[in-house]
Design a protein around this nucleic acid. Sequence first.
DNA 1: TTTTCCATGTAACTCGTTACATGATTTC
DNA 2: GAAATCATGTAACGAGTTACATGGAAAA
Lengths: 177, 177
Amino acid sequence: MDNPSFLLLGLLKGQSRHGYEINEFIERNLSRFVSLKKATAYSLLDRLQAKGLVAEHTEQIGKRPPRKVYSLTPAGEEEFARLLAESLRSAASPEFYGDLGLIFLGHIGREEAVALLRERRAELEAGVTALRRVPKHDGVIGAGLHGVDLAVGRQAALMEADLAWLDAALVRLEAET
Amino acid sequence: MDNPSFLLLGLLKGQSRHGYEINEFIERNLSRFVSLKKATAYSLLDRLQAKGLVAEHTEQIGKRPPRKVYSLTPAGEEEFARLLAESLRSAASPEFYGDLGLIFLGHIGREEAVALLRERRAELEAGVTALRRVPKHDGVIGAGLHGVDLAVGRQAALMEADLAWLDAALVRLEAET
DNA sequence: TTTTCCATGTAACTCGTTACATGATTTC
DNA sequence: GAAATCATGTAACGAGTTACATGGAAAA
């Protein structure tokens, strides 16, 4: 059970939604953080239904196109609880693949490397500033001290640490003969 | 052009290797950081050759099985340089998908959440300790102040920041009514 | 009246994983 | 004689992306 499924189950927890609505929600509120394409969401909802984790019923309002409304089944509730516990429990160490550039730093000239890392620094700083400006999502999903805001806070903290590390690395790199 | 390709091109930079050798190298030196399966590497090498980024020639030593030795073509050198610059330049913000658990924290009881986050804390702390103990890879890929060691240092810094954030978050969570 | 919104989907494609297959040769 | 090493692959599968298709209703 992977992240996309977890996301969909979470959005259906305590609230039925139809596919289009789910896609809208993701685009409007979560696009900064996750990327789940429409087609993927639709077909994933099908698969979740096939697995018995969500139930589907069709409804039509006025002359609008009919919608498929999904809601969690008991099995879905259980699975969501399991995934949530697992997600909170495990550390999911900050990505490493993005560090391939650092691993291969020896294949580029020192000065060029420094120049590129300075660009990275600028981008990172802009990213932190932008994140700190993100409006409060409080209540969008849960209530109280959690939800999107909590994740945003963690993200900002990590990016600030990245910035600090990068500054130190630049100093060391420039001190190299 | 994605991470797996970048990895393979980087391993071929300045040094021809055959498929088996590449897989061995990844397993022995990089398994902590990247996961690229054998079958994937073999077929990816084929694709890279089809794209003209690597050249292939077969050699046989004694009565051992014949090997396919790959090396970068000029186009491959160029592509690698491009990918390296791009990788160093871009910030590649520390993963967010792993934060889905935090986003859905509102769907679980406060005490249970705290208990799970404490488990996460322990795991994270163990991870940091383990990382700090990673033996120096200096010279494995490049030489000097870079290569795997640099990436390990960044990773450790990020994990320590994560730990600090987590502690603060726990304090706030427990202060909630 | 033209564009945007609502709402769902299909088809073709690429990518990565798993499990399996092969067969000689060196090491224990 | 058995096991691990060397060395490369294939086939089947699932997941995700892109581009395309549809068609009525509401808004500009």
